[in-house]
Amino acid sequence: MSFRIDQLPKKKYVLPGNAACAGCGMMIGLKILGMALGEEATLTIPASCASVVQGLAPKSGVAMPILNVPFASAAAVATGIAEAFKSLGIKGHAVVWAGDGGTADIGMATLSGAAERNSNIIYIMYDNEAYMNTGIQRSSSTPRAAWTTTTPTGKRERKKDVALLMAMHGAPYVATASIAYPQDFYRKLKRAAEIDGFKFIHLHTPCPLGWRLNPAKTVEVAKLAVETGAWILWEYDNGRFKLNPPSTIYADKTKRKPLRDYLKLQGRFAHLSEEEIRLLEEEIEAKWNTILALSKAFSQSQ
């Protein structure tokens, strides 16, 4: 599926004057979600930046139906909504919009439960790679070496790969996406909406505040994450695992931009030594080997 920018819906699902920080990457994601599923979705939002950006009641800066819910509960609440819709004969998607903390950490049990029982929900993990809402504390989705307020000398552990975990649950649809590639994210949302059962999209969303990043560079840095190979776009669709453009060409290591180009825009990596950067590059290479092995092993639809 391809589309022209001017054919995207003009209706605003993110409204001006909301409470997001200037340059928030997550809001670009919410906009695309609105364009793709705005009239079909009911959102479940756990504690996160996404609960704050809506702004203050009785107004909402996000123009979709939203149930705000406790931190760990989102996948289960959305399951309840989906089951209610099924039972009451209502058309529509129960969509979770959750951060990396609410997904990879405190919400992991409800997420895994929903994936295992194949609950009919679309779960979007917007990943800004730390607890940004509470002021930049590490999450299990924070990359290795990144500064946060609870990893003042850099995180020592590697990033938890939640999308791969969901694929290994055997979910019918799992994908990664980036706010730098709205067309890809839009297509993946539309694809997810066609599938019955559990759908998971892992969306990379830079956070100027937490990444110590010039807000103007939000899209640029997200693009660099893909161009350097640090973030890989792929999808696992009914058993078939494949790379998506533009990541497809970065399977060839020589085509990737130097990792340094991605890191140098972000203050959270400012303290890294040459050796540490080299180790990060090795880790990225190992991730690529995993992804390429998976796309080879699962090259056919099941």
């Binding site: 009911t42 479940t44 149930l67 819910v69 406790p70 760990a72 509960s73 996948a75 289960a76 609440v77 959305a78 399951t79 309840g80 909504i81 089951e83 209610a84 819709f85 099924k86 039972s87 009451l88 209502i90 129960a94 049990a109 409800t110 895994s112 439960g113 295992e116 029982r117 609950s119």
Partner: peptide, 27 residues
């Protein structure tokens, strides 16, 4: 004729029936 959801914890159980009830279901 009900949707029976096997959950992974009581927290999820309450969360599921909560979501269902908010969407208009008897739960």
């Amino acid at each position: 004729n009900a949707r029976f959801v096997n959950v992974e914890s009581e927290f999820a159980g309450m969360s599921v029936v909560y979501g269902a009830a908010m969407a208009g279901a008897r739960a």
